[in-house]
């Protein structure tokens, strides 16, 4: 008979083995992508091994030159411009709306709140075509405005909800003492609620960045000029430019396009868990 202690240790050991083995299978596609991008030559993509026989950066060099005379750094720069604008717009507009819902009193608040929650579940395609027609009449097609401007109006209701959940948890006695000190509602927002809500604003910024970085549909819809392409569409150009030789550079640039995601993920991990666990972010 095993002692209870041995049994627990054995059970833990088995858990470790299962988790690691399964984790490796799961990570295989990503590891294979990275390994393949470092393998020399072009006929390497049937090779399932994760360890390159020799390491070569040729695909990175070619990939960085880009496609169709557009340097890959252009796509990255474009993506960064779009992402940072979206992040700023989302954080400001969504925290304003969240403050109203979480802390202020006004007529029809319940109704608007219900509508806001429902709008999270609304399939985007119901608004896609009229929005396109609208932005087209504004002359915004083939600019970044259709990707950024809606965010100034808190159209990602999802983040409003996330911030509301957080702001509701903030202690209210701070408001009262601030009111006694002569702070108005705007003052309370700027001096108390915003500084205390930083964690949930980081979560909002984080997911705004990642979703915009990976977004493809809106870019496909609105951006037509290759020199204005963001990373998603830039990567696709490698594929359209056909020919086996393009897989290598495309893989290399795919790895490059993932670097920002990895950096954000590993530096801001706790905000991920917070964001997902409190609101159940889709994904």
């Amino acid at each position: 008979m095993m002692s209870k202690n041995t049994k627990t240790i054995l059970k833990k050991l088995i858990s470790h083995v299962i988790i690691i083995a399964f984790g490796l299978i799961m990570l295989y596609p990503v590891l294979w992508l990275i390994a393949s991008s470092l393998k020399p030559g072009s006929a390497i993509f049937s090779d399932p091994s994760l360890i390159p026989s020799s390491i070569s950066f040729e695909h990175y060099v070619t990939g960085w030159q880009g496609v169709g005379r557009i340097h890959f750094s252009t796509f990255i720069l474009n993506s960064l411009v779009i992402c940072f604008s979206v992040v700023v717009a989302n954080v400001i507009s969504c925290s304003m709306a969240a403050y109203a819902f979480a802390r202020l009193k006004f007529s029809l608040k319940g109704l608007w709140f219900g509508i806001m929650i429902l709008s999270i579940m609304l399939p985007t395609h119901v608004t896609t075509i009229p929005r396109y027609v609208m932005f087209n009449t504004f002359g915004w097609v083939d600019t970044y405005l259709p990707l950024i401007a809606p965010k100034l109006l808190a159209t990602d209701a999802f983040f409003v909800f996330l911030l509301v959940q957080f702001m509701r948890g903030l202690p209210r006695d701070l408001d009262e003492s601030a009111t006694l000190d002569g702070c108005g509602k705007i003052g309370i927002f700027l001096r108390i609620v915003v500084p205390l809500s930083v964690p949930s604003m980081v979560t909002t910024a984080l997911f705004s960045f990642l979703w915009t970085w990976d977004d493809f549909f809106n870019q496909l819809l609105y951006i037509n000029t290759p020199s204005k392409y963001a990373v998603s569409q830039g990567l696709r150009m490698f594929m359209d430019a056909s020919g086996q030789s393009n897989w290598g550079p495309m893989f290399a640039m795919s790895v490059v396009s993932m670097i920002p995601c990895f950096i954000l993920f590993f530096t801001l991990q706790k905000y991920f868990v917070q964001g997902i666990a409190t609101t159940g972010i889709k994904g």
Binding site: S93, M96, A97, L104, I115, A154
Partner: peptide, 16 residues
């Protein structure tokens, strides 16, 4: 004050 803070979202909801 309430509608001041709600304005961006409300305009977005109605218009977009």
């Amino acid at each position: 004050v309430g509608y001041l803070f709600l304005a961006p979202w409300l305009i977005g909801f109605l218009g977009l």
